[in-house]
Simulated assay, not measured.
Amino acid sequence: MKYFITTSVDDRTVTWRQDIADPFVHHTIIIGWPVLLRGLFRRRLKVVVDLGGDAETIFQVMNLGQPETGDPTAHDGTTS
């Protein structure tokens, strides 16, 4: 697949690189009672949803609005 999604709740991975067909996605996370209660006692519940893609996809997104070079591994020598 071209895109993937990784989800974690309180630094515990729920899904790892789950393939998705479209980056414009509605992702639902169902939090069970044990996790919800643990979050209430800590007064926080951190949910992280990370959307990623293969190397070609990342290259295309990072170069939006720039002229096409044709080589996804080519760069101008600058460091980021």
Rank of each mutant, 00 (worst) to 15 (best):
K2L: 05
Y3G: 04
F4V: 08
F4G: 11
I5F: 00
I5E: 07
T6I: 04
T7I: 14
S8K: 14
V9N: 02
D10R: 02
D11Y: 00
R12F: 01
V14E: 09
T15V: 10
T15M: 02
T15N: 04
W16N: 09
W16S: 08
R17Q: 14
D19I: 00
D19A: 14
D19Q: 12
A21Y: 04
D22F: 01
D22M: 03
D22P: 01
P23V: 09
V25S: 07
V25T: 12
H27A: 15
H27C: 06
H27E: 14
T28H: 11
T28Y: 06
T28C: 08
I31Q: 12
G32I: 07
P34C: 00
V35K: 12
V35D: 12
L36I: 00
L36A: 07
L36M: 01
L37C: 04
G39I: 04
G39Y: 05
L40P: 03
F41M: 09
F41R: 15
F41Q: 14
F41H: 02
R42L: 13
L45P: 07
L45C: 10
L45G: 08
L45K: 01
K46G: 02
K46R: 14
V49E: 02
D50Y: 10
L51F: 12
L51S: 06
G52I: 09
G52A: 14
G53V: 07
E56V: 13
T57V: 15
I58N: 13
I58G: 13
F59L: 09
M62K: 13
L64G: 05
L64I: 15
L64H: 09
G65R: 05
G65S: 10
P67W: 03
E68P: 02
E68M: 12
T69R: 15
G70H: 07
D71S: 12
D71L: 06
P72L: 10
P72T: 07
T73H: 11
T73F: 11
A74R: 10
H75Q: 11
D76L: 00
D76F: 03
G77S: 05
G77P: 02
T78Q: 06
T78F: 02
T79P: 06
